[in-house]
Design a protein around this nucleic acid. Structure first.
Lengths: 191, 191
DNA sequence: CACACCATGTAACCTGTTACATGATTGT
DNA sequence: ACAATCATGTAACAGGTTACATGGTGTG
């Protein structure tokens, strides 16, 4: 049960509709979690049924009516409980790593291609997250914001997300270059 | 379906029993995937039923009889197919990030404590992975091994794992220090 | 004699993904 | 008119976790 808490944590920043959440949780800016629209709508229903969030209808003249959700006191208490509980460490689980692991035994070309694509995608995400960070801290420099700025939680998770993408990018670029180079010299001369 | 391929990729390095795989896939050295023993045994059964791996019984006098598995031609073909197919990018999904995201609204002390614990765990994992890397490359230096050493796949995934843990460690340490500092000065003087 | 390690599984449950569904409005 | 965006869901399935189960061997 963790999407539950991810949604609660996201709603701390203000009221959001299901659709707005899907944007935040979607590919673009998953700085601390990821979920698909369907899962979010489902989780929002459950959270509302459990009284952890409450939704209010907002009728729009130009757009379809939407429901904005906010965290209730019960929801905050649940988050409090969750934050204090211990939880398992996280793991990398990435198909691309599996492919690279097997690269000595399978065709390298498609793997290299995918490394290139990933590198590009990661670079794009770094940009997005960097913009988000700048928006968060406004005109303050990073050091000052980290000392006194608020909210600090989203800033920290965003920082982590950016670093992850940067690392991923660098690794992809390096691995691709390396495998290309090795493919060009299939039989290194034994000295 | 990806544990399937992770197991196949792992078995490329040689024959392993279910138990040996659980060690490799377990908390210690999940350099490219993670899975629990139960899941591995189940997956091994399925893979054998599907003819992608084959197991041979090894009777030991001092230990219980075990079954060593290796990848069949069909299994290799399946991996080949998998490696060429495109796959979704990976995401961070970590309870700890959710907690940090909410840190402006919940008790900081337990979160800081968990950041400390994670930092220590990550540091330990970095050590383990570093040893693995040194074992992989033997007496070659890294540059040389990356140019010509084999197998290169496991080395690359291990490198990625190490970097991930290192980043995670650094972030945890930084976030913990920062939150501690902020907790000590709850109301920064507005100038 | 108890604890850790080797060795392997099953069953129930929870979570997450994919596919299916609908419908209004705004911009090109 | 067509595509994109806003807006919300359901149903079936695949994948992963937790709990339950068992039994032999070596070490302190």
């Amino acid at each position: 049960m963790s999407l539950r808490h991810a949604v609660l944590a996201a709603l701390l920043s203000g009221e959001y509709s299901g659709y707005q959440l899907t944007k935040a949780f979607d590919v673009g800016v998953a700085n601390f979690w990821y979920a698909q629209p369907q899962q979010l709508y489902l989780e929002l229903s459950k959270l509302e049924n459990d009284g952890l969030i409450s939704g209010r209808e907002v009728v729009q003249q130009t757009r379809p009516t939407k429901r904005l959700f906010s965290v209730t006191d019960a929801g905050l208490a649940e988050l409090e409980r969750f934050a204090a509980a211990t939880s398992k460490p996280s793991f990398i689980r990435d198909d691309l790593l599996v492919k690279v692991q097997a690269v000595d035994h399978v065709e390298v070309a498609p793997v290299i291609e995918q490394l290139d694509q990933r590198a590009a995608a990661a670079a794009a995400k770094v940009e997005i997250l960097d913009k988000l960070l700048r928006r968060f801290r406004g005109d303050l420099d990073e050091e000052t914001f980290l000392r006194d700025g608020t909210p600090i939680g989203p800033y920290l998770t965003c920082l982590r997300g950016k670093r992850f993408e940067q690392e991923h990018h660098d690794w992809c670029v390096r691995a691709a270059a390396l495998l290309r180079d090795r493919a060009a010299r299939p039989l290194p001369a034994p000295r």
